[in-house]
Amino acid sequence: MTPRPLFAPLDRVTVEQIPFRASDGTELGLCRLTANSPTAQEPTDRPAVLLLHGLTASADMFVLPETRNLVDALLGAGYEPWLLDWRGSCRLPHNEGRVRYTFDDVALYDIPDAVSYIRDRIGGRQLFVVAHCLGALSLSLSMTGGLVPGLAGVVAQGVFMTPKYSARSRLLGHLGGEWGRSRWTHLPVDFTKVGFRSRYTPMFALASLSAGDCDDPTCHILHNSAWGTGASLYVHENLHETTHGRLAELFGSAPTWIGPHLRRMELAHTAMPWNTGGQGYDRLPENALDSADRIDCPVLLLSGSDNKTFHDSNELCYDVLSSRYPDLDVRYVEVPGYGHVDPFIGRGAALDVFGHILDFLDERSAAPSREGVPAGRVSEGSRSSR
Rank of each mutant, 00 (worst) to 15 (best):
R246W: 14
T218R: 01
H220T: 00
G228Y: 11
C219N: 04
T218A: 13
A248F: 10
T256I: 10
L187K: 07
H186E: 09
G173R: 03
A226S: 15
G230W: 07
G176F: 14
T185A: 12
F191E: 04
L247C: 08
S225C: 15
S225E: 14
H174Q: 12
I258E: 05
V235F: 09
H244L: 15
L206Q: 05
T185C: 08
P188N: 01
G245N: 13
E237M: 02
L209M: 03
L187V: 13
A207V: 01
R246P: 04
W257C: 10
S198Q: 06
I295Y: 01
S208D: 06
Y281I: 03
S182H: 15
P255R: 02
L239D: 11
D296G: 03
H261S: 09
G277V: 00
E249G: 10
T192V: 07
A226P: 01
W227L: 05
A231H: 05
E178H: 13
G280V: 05
I221G: 03
H223C: 07
E178I: 06
R263A: 10
L187T: 05
R197H: 15
S253N: 07
E286V: 02
P188D: 04
R199H: 12
Q279V: 05
S208Y: 00
G245S: 15
R183A: 12
S182M: 15
S208L: 03
L222T: 05
S208G: 11
D296F: 04
H261A: 13
H261P: 01
D190T: 03
D293G: 11
R181M: 12
T201L: 05
H174P: 00
L239Y: 13
N224E: 12
V189A: 03
S225V: 13
M265D: 09
T229C: 11
S210L: 08
S291T: 02
C214D: 15
T276Y: 11
G278T: 10
G180H: 09
L247A: 06
H244P: 00
S253F: 04
P255E: 03
D215A: 12
A207F: 04
E286Y: 07
E237W: 05
T270Q: 04
F196A: 15
P188S: 04
A271D: 02
T270D: 10
F196H: 14
F196N: 10
S232L: 08
T192A: 15
L222W: 11
H174F: 12
D190Y: 06
P285M: 02
A226L: 15
C219H: 06
T270A: 12
S198P: 07
L175M: 14
